[in-house]
Every structure is written in structure tokens, then in C-alpha cells.
Design a protein around this nucleic acid. Sequence first.
DNA 1: ACTGAAATCACTTCCTC
DNA 2: GAGGAAGTGATTTCAGT
Lengths: 153, 153
Amino acid sequence: MENLDQTDRTILRILQNDSKKTAKEIAAMLNLTVSPVYERIRRLENQGFIKKYVAILDKDRIGRSITAICQISMRYHDESFIDEFEKQIQSLNEVQECYHMAGQVDFILKIHVQSLESYHEFVRYQLSKIKNIGVINSNFVIKEIKHTSEYYI
Amino acid sequence: MENLDQTDRTILRILQNDSKKTAKEIAAMLNLTVSPVYERIRRLENQGFIKKYVAILDKDRIGRSITAICQISMRYHDESFIDEFEKQIQSLNEVQECYHMAGQVDFILKIHVQSLESYHEFVRYQLSKIKNIGVINSNFVIKEIKHTSEYYI
DNA sequence: ACTGAAATCACTTCCTC
DNA sequence: GAGGAAGTGATTTCAGT
């Protein structure tokens, strides 16, 4: 973070919002030519500031309209149980995010499914098959207020 | 979703993982030439399946290592209060996600900050300035198990 | 819907200051 | 660290099947 100047930050801000912007367009915004912009972007990639470039899909359009937040507490907290749980969660396609938490609840998951019925099936046939789960507490999103992949820089 | 054939889905799967893949590379994977791949991608964009293309940054690298999940209940549930809350939340740079929930808790937020101290400042100077908040319950992520922008297709 | 070729434009390298 | 010119390769369009 310390080794990023104002130009780098502007480039990151632009690419977080639209990675299809060409080096030429970015150069114009910064009053630079293409070469320095190109070299900065490559440096930001190589130094790991930019992890990847992805397409963001419309979840409603592809039939994943239901978002559930699922809070899970484990029965036992042995290292081996936790490791196993984490491995299993990673392999579930419905799970978009999973965090190990400090506090009462052990894990918080964000899950996308097609319908309430598919959520039922997900809990019944996938989640509850994982060993050592104590409490599962599910809540549904009724409105997405904000959802961005951009970090404020 | 119904008007997507297997080729479209494969293209979406590839672009969700790496939007820098060229039409040529994708064509090779699908045993096609460049033109149909190019035209399908443009159709998927125009029909709104692909919303945008973005760069994903490394949050540790840019000094946003702390993730907090914050659950908020409102004091009153009048429409005007809720609307105002949503508007204010959208303008907060630290808030990555915010969902209006069905259930006991009204809103769940995901927040990225630099340190526990900056989280304290966020709650004190930004969040608690918003009118009509009843209960704020914050929990911190100790490990990110899974975090992807890809939807399973 | 796909192929193949042609035109345009962006990416990438390298040499300069 | 930035500019400019040159080469390479991808995007984009279109006629043909």
C-alpha cells in the first residue's frame, strides 16, 4: 500500500470498476501515454495487488435469485473437525462465501440458490451431511442494498 | 437461463474465472473458431447475463485485512427510516455488502477496514451517526474459508 | 449458427530522453 | 518514470455456406 502512488491508485480504482477499459483510455484520463500505464498495470499484477480479472454475472438472469445467510456453530472444536468442515464447504457450489468467525457463531456462509425449495435440498442433502455441525441458523435476504467487489482505495 | 445452451454456459464459466481469456483461447477449448465465440460473448453482454468486467484486488495487499460482519436491528420500521438507512449505507466506502434480511436482524453488513482501530472509528463516526439504529452486533472474521464471485452454472 | 479472411485497434517491446 | 515508434496479436466485421 505504501509503495502505491496516486497514479497507481487511480488505475486500481478504474480497473476495479471496469477492467475492459483500455490502457489508452486510462492514459487519457491520467494525461499520460500508453506505455507508462501499461507498465504500471503489469507491475500491479506482478506484485499481487491485482489478483485476477473476472466477469460478474447477473444472478437473477442465471437463476440464482435466492440469497441466504447461514450461521453455523460446531459441536466440537477439535482442529481435525474444523479442517474437515472447511474442506467440505469449499467444494459446495452453492456456497459463495464462508468465514470462520470469532464469537458465538463459528461460521457464516452466503449461499445462492434458485428457490426456497433448492435451499431446503441444499441444507438437507449437502450441509447436514457434514459431520459435527451443532446449530444451523438460516436467514434469507429480502433485498440486496449494496454488493460490490470494489475496495475503497 | 432457459435460452442458454451448453456452449454459452461454458463461456460464462470461463469468463467468471478469468475474463482475460481471449476469444481465440476460448474458441480452442470449445473446438470453434473465433467469430461464434465473439458473437456469443457480445450477446451474453447485451442480454445482461454479463453485468460487468472487473479487476479483483488482494485486500491484504491494499491494507484492508480486517473483515467484520455487522448485524443491525432498527428501532422503528417505518418505510422512511428504512429508505434513509439504505441510502446512507450505500455511501459508506467501508461497506462491501449490505442485505435487508427476513428475520430477527434487519440488516447484515460486510465491512472491510485496515485495523480494529479503524473499525472502532467506523462504528463510532459513521455507523452510529445513522438515525434509528437499535442494536449493532459486530463479529470479526478470523479466517476466510471461501470467497468467490463465481456462480455455479 | 459456424467458417475464414480482412481491417482495425490494442497490447507489448524496446529505445529514447 | 514517461514518451514514441514499431511489431505482434486480438478484436471486430462481413461475405459465404
